[in-house]
Computed example of a mutant assay.
Amino acid sequence: MPMAIAFSAYGDPEVLHPIDIEPPTPGTGQLRIRVKAAGVNPVDVKLRRGDFAATMPVDFPQRLGNEYAGIVDQVGDGVAGLTVGDEVLGSTTAQGYAEYVLVDAADTVHKPASMPWTVAAGLPAVGQTAHTALHQLGVRPGDTVLIHAAAGGVGTVATQLARLSGATVIGTASHHNHDYLRSLGATPVTYGPGLVDRIRLLTADGVDAVLDAVGGEAIAASLALVPDRQRIGTLVDAHAVSEHGILRLGGRSTAALRELVTLYAEGRLHIPIHATFPLSQADQAHRAVQTGHARGKVVLTVS
Rank of each mutant, 00 (worst) to 15 (best):
89 L>Y: 02
89 L>N: 01
89 L>W: 00
90 G>P: 08
90 G>W: 00
91 S>W: 00
91 S>E: 12
91 S>H: 06
91 S>P: 05
92 T>V: 08
92 T>M: 12
92 T>H: 02
92 T>C: 15
93 T>K: 10
93 T>H: 12
93 T>M: 10
93 T>I: 14
93 T>N: 13
93 T>F: 14
94 A>W: 06
94 A>Q: 15
94 A>R: 15
94 A>P: 06
94 A>C: 12
94 A>M: 14
94 A>L: 15
95 Q>K: 13
95 Q>E: 15
95 Q>L: 13
95 Q>N: 15
96 G>M: 03
96 G>D: 11
96 G>T: 12
96 G>E: 12
97 Y>H: 13
97 Y>D: 09
97 Y>R: 10
97 Y>N: 10
97 Y>V: 03
97 Y>Q: 10
98 A>H: 06
98 A>D: 09
98 A>N: 11
98 A>E: 01
99 E>D: 12
99 E>M: 10
99 E>G: 11
99 E>P: 06
100 Y>F: 15
100 Y>P: 01
100 Y>K: 01
101 V>C: 12
101 V>G: 06
101 V>K: 09
102 L>A: 02
102 L>E: 04
102 L>R: 05
102 L>V: 05
102 L>G: 04
102 L>K: 10
103 V>S: 07
103 V>T: 06
103 V>H: 06
103 V>L: 04
104 D>L: 01
104 D>S: 13
104 D>T: 04
104 D>F: 07
104 D>V: 02
104 D>G: 13
104 D>A: 13
105 A>T: 08
105 A>H: 02
106 A>M: 04
106 A>N: 05
106 A>D: 11
107 D>P: 02
107 D>R: 14
107 D>N: 13
107 D>I: 02
107 D>T: 15
107 D>G: 11
108 T>E: 10
108 T>Y: 08
108 T>Q: 13
108 T>I: 15
109 V>Q: 08
109 V>P: 10
109 V>G: 10
110 H>W: 04
110 H>C: 08
110 H>P: 11
110 H>K: 14
111 K>L: 10
111 K>F: 01
111 K>T: 07
111 K>G: 11
112 P>Y: 03
112 P>Q: 03
112 P>T: 12
112 P>V: 06
113 A>M: 13
113 A>V: 13
113 A>L: 13
114 S>W: 11
114 S>F: 05
114 S>Y: 03
115 M>K: 02
115 M>W: 00
115 M>H: 00
116 P>R: 05
116 P>Q: 09
116 P>H: 04
116 P>T: 09
117 W>A: 04
117 W>V: 03
117 W>N: 07
117 W>D: 07
118 T>I: 06
118 T>R: 11
118 T>D: 15
118 T>E: 15
118 T>Q: 14
119 V>K: 03
119 V>C: 04
119 V>L: 01
119 V>S: 00
119 V>P: 00
120 A>F: 00
120 A>V: 11
120 A>W: 01
120 A>H: 01
121 A>N: 03
122 G>A: 03
122 G>E: 00
122 G>M: 03
122 G>H: 00
122 G>N: 00
